[in-house]
Design a protein around this nucleic acid. Structure first.
Lengths: 203, 203
DNA sequence: TTTCAAAAATGGTCTGACCACTAATCGAAT
DNA sequence: ATTCGATTAGTGGTCAGACCATTTTTGAAA
């Protein structure tokens, strides 16, 4: 109705829901209107409402609890990994782009942190290294350190998709090395080392 | 039925569809069974089938054509990136963060182009400067030049949001200056100049 | 053989019903 | 008045069937 009438109802519903969330300033954990309410307010059948909700549920943006309702949820890209990977693995074309963007974002993060003279690396130093995915854990910390939440979310998003395509684990030793370079303020070496972790992907 | 009976039907359907694709070795462009066929074969209602299909359609894994059918499709993460961003940005829409990310992405683009010795800046030189938004036009061209479509998409999205928050127009002269620096391969000056365009935003 | 209208197949959408689960309500026993 | 329990209302989960819009196939007429 609003834009192209060619757009499917469930896509319109998605936009309306997004708009609703913005207007009401809903946050993680808040409850959305019930499917029946949405159906009435958005002038669409409950089936269409559900198609939209199921879609963003699969993306991990909402959480539905039987008998309770539908709730906003902190975005967790790991949600539908198994499913996605089997679909996606046969197409490697975009894998390189994903990896490259992830790499570039991380380089940006490192560069910005290094450029800050007053940056206290000691907090990062105390990072626990007992996680399964050290790389993600470390850069999650570094992005938080930098403080730009949008940049962090974008990186997190891309990382989620990368894991879908490229489920590799990095060795712990490598990141202890990276962390050592950072703590010694050998920034150029740190950047190069970080880059080297990505270079062997080209096979 | 198969695993946890707690799992929703549409998720079971997703697994079955994935399995079907593997068994039949379907490739991009191949057609899936019709919704009614799937409904019969998988012993689920057409509504549940559709919920599953809509979900993976939003993920960009399939494409539906009215009257024709449902087809496998080359996976492109950009689809969901677009939708996700609008959700992800809901809490983050601080003007400063938006501007900073936009700036950083552009710096990345410039850096990567400059690092490429064989880059031919002459094509960019021929850019028409009759658009209303010179900045967007120029960097759209530069990002395309670099070739990473995902990076371009992310930048484009961020730029779109920035414009809704900060509807400024840049003067034409400034970008002729920037372009001049690029064409003269004075890359460091170009980066600094680009940065200076953002610095006066801190009011 | 070619052409084109009818029929079949397919996705898009809606309605209404029923079940399962949860939380709120209300009344009875304490 | 308080507590506890069953009832009830609200919500998501699922299904069956209908109708429309678009595309493809079919088959008869030229």
């Amino acid at each position: 109705m609003t834009n192209q009438s060619k757009m499917k109802v469930y896509q319109e519903v998605l936009n309306q829901i997004r708009q609703f969330i913005e207007e009401q300033e809903l946050k993680d954990g808040d409850r959305l209107p019930s499917e029946r309410e949405l159906s009435e307010q958005l002038n669409a059948s409950r089936a269409s409402i559900r198609e939209a909700l199921r879609a963003i549920e699969l993306l991990g943006l909402i959480e539905t609890r039987h008998g309770e309702g539908t709730f906003l949820r902190t975005y967790k890209p790991y949600h539908s990994v198994e499913l996605l990977s089997t679909f996606v693995l046969r197409e490697v074309k975009t894998k390189d782009e994903l990896l490259e963007v992830k790499f570039l974002l991380e380089q940006v993060c490192l560069n910005q942190l290094f450029a800050d003279e007053q940056w206290d690396y000691s907090q990062v130093k105390n990072l626990l290294f007992e996680s399964n995915d050290i790389h993600t854990e470390l850069f999650l910390r570094l992005f938080e350190e930098y403080g730009n939440r949008l940049l962090l979310k974008i990186w997190h998003l891309v990382t989620g998709f990368v894991e879908t395509v490229d489920p590799k684990g990095a060795s712990q030793v490598q990141y202890e090395e990276l962390l050592k370079l950072i703590s010694q303020r050998q920034y150029n070496q740190a950047l190069d080392y970080h880059a080297s972790l990505y270079e062997k992907q080209c096979s």
